[in-house]
């Protein structure tokens, strides 16, 4: 059974006197224990809101969440606030985009880590501090003893993100949601943090007793296809609040079939291309869409558009290569892959 089953999740922001905004429009995906799943898409496609909805962190007022989020057999949507609070940090962890603003500026790092352990495991402060030091060592922060007493602004960006990962993993959650965890970091640090995440979620790490990590499922939310290519077992491409293409990493990158995925991959600048080659962006922007109810949201920007695209809503179906697709006119696989 899957660890996390998101089924037809919708999030609608409503405001009195204004048109409701549909941020997530029926997203479905599964995450197996220990699996790394990517949610990919450009800004505004509903990646972050999906994560917040899974965590139960959306405000109650002015937000309509529907569908189903089953975690370990329990329906999370509609769970009482206190029960959800008990699960956050213990069963589900989350790492955010900007490590500096995600840390409390007036509390030393050590106390911020022990807070989680005291909260969920009732670990006494002193013992929790030992574990916090161990966790910092585990996430690759040198001289953890000194760092425990330091404030967030004294740490480098990479170290802050490591500390946040330590907090999110302190209680060994079964699932970690990482929302663009490398976007605010230097490129060299990005690679380190990705390597760290990959290492931490890998099963079989029994080196550390109490702070043993591993066997954690990871949902990687990103717009960076490089991140996905390096890390994820399975990839979900989101557009306009729906999954438009899903598949295992290698086949999906080798032969994307949805025009949007093709466009995303084509717009990544390449070092090995010919000099002077123009970048090929996807024309238009996320706001140029039509509601899913009256066709395909990507139709206004799609190079492969057909008549049906603006009138018939495409369903998630198996397309070429047994790929799950939401498209009337998928891009055929490139010749060299077929051969």
């Amino acid at each position: 059974m899957a660890l996390l089953e998101v089924d037809d999740l919708s999030v609608v922001f409503t405001r009195k006197g204004e048109q409701p905004v549909v941020a997530v429009d029926g997203v479905s995906f599964d995450v197996d224990p220990g699996q790394t799943v990517g949610l990919v898409g450009e800004s505004g496609c509903g990646k972050s809101v999906t994560a917040l909805a899974i965590m139960g962190l959306l405000p109650r007022r002015g937000v309509r969440v529907s569908g189903s989020v089953r975690f370990d057999g329990t329906e999370l949507l509609g769970l009482p606030a206190a029960a959800m609070r008990d699960r956050r940090g213990r069963d589900l962890g989350m790492v955010f985009q900007d490590p500096l603003s995600s840390l409390n500026p007036v509390v030393p790092i050590g106390l911020q880590i022990t807070e989680v352990l005291e909260r969920h495991r009732r670990t006494p402060r002193k013992k929790a501090m030992v574990q916090a030091g161990d966790l910092l060592t585990r996430v690759g922060i040198p001289d953890p003893r000194r760092r425990l007493d330091e404030y967030p602004h004294q740490l480098s960006g990479g170290m802050r993100q490591r500390a946040l990962i330590a907090m999110a993993l302190a209680c060994r959650p079964k699932l970690l949601l990482a929302d663009e965890p490398t976007t605010a970091l230097d490129v060299t640090i990005q690679a380190q943090i990705l390597a760290l995440l990959a290492e931490l979620v890998r099963a079989g790490d029994t080196d550390l007793g109490d702070t043993d990590l591993g066997d954690t499922a990871l949902v990687m939310i990103t717009h960076d296809l490089g991140v996905v290519a390096g890390l994820c077992d399975e990839v979900n491409v989101l557009y306009g609040g729906r999954v438009v293409e899903r598949g295992p990493r290698h086949p999906l990158f080798a032969a994307p079939h949805h025009p949007y995925t093709v466009g995303l991959l084509a717009s990544v600048p390449r070092l090995d291309g010919p000099r002077g080659q123009r970048l090929s962006p996807i024309r238009g922007s996320v706001s140029d869409n039509i509601p899913w109810t009256s066709g395909c949201a990507f139709a206004p920007r799609c190079p492969n558009v057909l008549g049906a695209c603006t009138s018939v809503t495409p369903e998630m179906e198996f397309g070429p290569d047994e790929r799950l697709l939401r498209c009337h006119n998928p891009v055929p696989a490139p010749q060299e892959v077929r051969a």
């Binding site: 609070r85 940090g89 213990r90 962890g93 955010f96 995600s102 807070e115 989680v116 909260r119 907090m167």
Partner: peptide, 16 residues
């Protein structure tokens, strides 16, 4: 703020 959201994501109680 982000850090309050992050604290909520860790299940920290309202009073804390």
């Amino acid at each position: 703020s982000d850090h309050v959201l992050a604290a909520r994501a860790l299940g920290v109680r309202r009073r804390a």
